[in-house]
Amino acid sequence: MMIYLTLGFLLFFALLAVFLRDTLLSVLSLATVSALLSIAFYQLNSPVAGAFELSVGAGLITVLAVLTISFLQKRKEKKQPGAALWLALSLALAALVFFLFQALWPQVLADIIPETSWGEVGEILWKVRLFDLLPQILVILAAVLGILALLRKEGESKER
């Protein structure tokens, strides 16, 4: 079963993410975990969740994390291994992800990809579970306000 293979790979990269000593490498492993999870979703017939996981989980979160790490490490001016090494590693990871995608994509298509899936999910999101929209918007609003509050300029606050 393909799905077990994908999830086995996923667990392997999850182990790497936990045990690798270098933070940047482990964040990249986490991105791989995300990408593999989205492939697993495709295989499990959930293309919408897969697309979301790929773009948001593997993409956005990784970018945020890598930006934070590189920003913080630059400020510390810690000596880093050469940029070429990073480039090579990221390329290798990207190639692996691409390969898996290539290997698995046709089968998924050949299997039962429900053509209405996108429409159905949209239908449920916007009709059946419309009442989730308000809390979702509020969570986003709260997160934006919270981030603004936490990243605001240093002010002198009295000891209190």
Binding site: F41, L44, N45, S46, V48, A49, F52, E53, V56, G57, L60, I61, S117, E120, V121, E123, I124, L125, V128, R129, D132, Q136, V139, I140, A142, A143
Partner: peptide
């Protein structure tokens, strides 16, 4: 699947926040 996919989409959005 469509139902839980929509839940998963929302859960992923919350996760990013």
């Amino acid at each position: 699947l469509s139902y839980t996919q929509s839940l998963a989409v929302i859960a992923i959005a919350i996760e990013v926040m």
